[in-house]
Amino acid sequence: MSLEQFSHLLAASTHTFVHPLPAELLLASEGDLQTFYAPFDHVNTGARIVLCGITPGLQQASRALDEARRKLRQGASIEHAKQAAKATASFAGDMRSNLVNMLDHIGLHKLLKIDSSARLFDTHCHLVHHTSALRYPVFIKGKNYSGSPAMLCRPSLRHQVETHLAEEIRMLGSQCIYVPLGPKVSQVFHHLQGRGVLKAEQLLDGLPHPSKANGERISYFLGRKPREKLTIKTNPAVLDDGKARLLAKLATLQSEGFMN
């Protein structure tokens, strides 16, 4: 699927792109899961780092569809519309702020030789490819899918992982490093690593997912909430191990002159 197939429909649409999304954009239905098209097709093949979430949510999908429609109505090319839609919607909202804070906390910006990871969303966007384990937005019982049931356990979801995501990794090549956001996305990357799609040294896993609902884990990861004040929902040992693994890999990449 690509914007080319939906461009005429999208340009003519008067839909406000709130839920439910137009039935014409439905790609797959499996039980209580539904997958819809939204323009997240663009791949920045010059990227050095890839930030990978679970799947675009309704907010991101709505922004991407709105921006693609706006560009198409202005006479932009399909490729320009795809680029603009992806740039506008990737990790939009509170998630972007949490993500930048965590990436700066572990020092990714230093590896990339920029003053903050926030630059990946403006002046240095050429360095990054934003994507999701599930390229197209998935909803479960009409609500944003957040990783359950597991992506590799449902055929329609596994198909997205083993086709779209695997294809992107092959397009980007071995010069990229991958930052999966949260353990559920890490599982997907370890699965693809086992299939030979990428190498272990390309994987920077260990970050909590940057969603607002993950606030306590993020606060602990950033050193803002002490261990003794955590609720039983947060496992500090897992977060400590993830951070240590990230810092060790970043140090190795720095010593190897990753950006040289």
Rank of each mutant, 00 (worst) to 15 (best):
I169G: 06
H126L: 08
Y145K: 03
G147M: 04
L127W: 00
S174H: 05
I140V: 15
K143L: 12
K184E: 12
H164C: 12
R154Y: 11
L165E: 02
S116V: 13
R154P: 09
Y178V: 01
P149N: 07
G147L: 05
K113E: 15
G182Q: 10
N144S: 12
S174E: 08
Y178D: 03
Q187S: 12
R135N: 02
G147C: 04
L172N: 04
K143N: 10
Y136G: 00
Q160A: 15
V128D: 05
G147S: 03
V128H: 03
A166C: 14
A150G: 15
I177D: 07
L181K: 01
T163R: 11
S148C: 11
C153W: 06
E168T: 05
V128I: 11
L152K: 09
V161Q: 12
F139N: 01
D122V: 06
H124W: 01
A118D: 11
Y145M: 07
T123K: 07
G142I: 01
P155S: 06
K143H: 13
S116T: 13
V128Y: 05
I114V: 14
Q187T: 09
A166D: 06
L165I: 10
H130K: 04
T163E: 13
Q187L: 09
M151K: 06
V179Y: 03
R158I: 08
D122F: 11
E162Y: 13
H126G: 09
V138T: 03
Q187N: 10
E162I: 11
E168I: 04
Q160V: 03
Y178P: 03
A118Y: 15
G147R: 01
R158H: 13
H130F: 14
H159A: 12
T131G: 02
D115A: 15
V179M: 05
I140D: 03
A118C: 10
S132Q: 01
G142N: 02
L181C: 00
S116K: 08
F139P: 00
A150R: 13
E167K: 10
P155F: 01
K184R: 15
C153M: 10
L127V: 01
E162G: 13
T131K: 00
R119P: 08
L165T: 04
I114R: 06
H126Q: 12
A166K: 07
L152A: 09
Y178T: 03
S174T: 06
R170C: 15
E168C: 05
S146L: 15
L127P: 00
L181R: 02
A150N: 12
L127R: 00
D115N: 14
L172V: 08
I140H: 04
P137F: 06
C176V: 10
V128P: 01
G142V: 01
R154G: 08
I177N: 02
G142R: 04
L127A: 04
Q187C: 06
Q187E: 09
V128W: 05
V188Y: 00
V128M: 05
H126T: 08
T131F: 02
S116P: 09
G142L: 00
R158T: 15
P183E: 08
H124D: 10
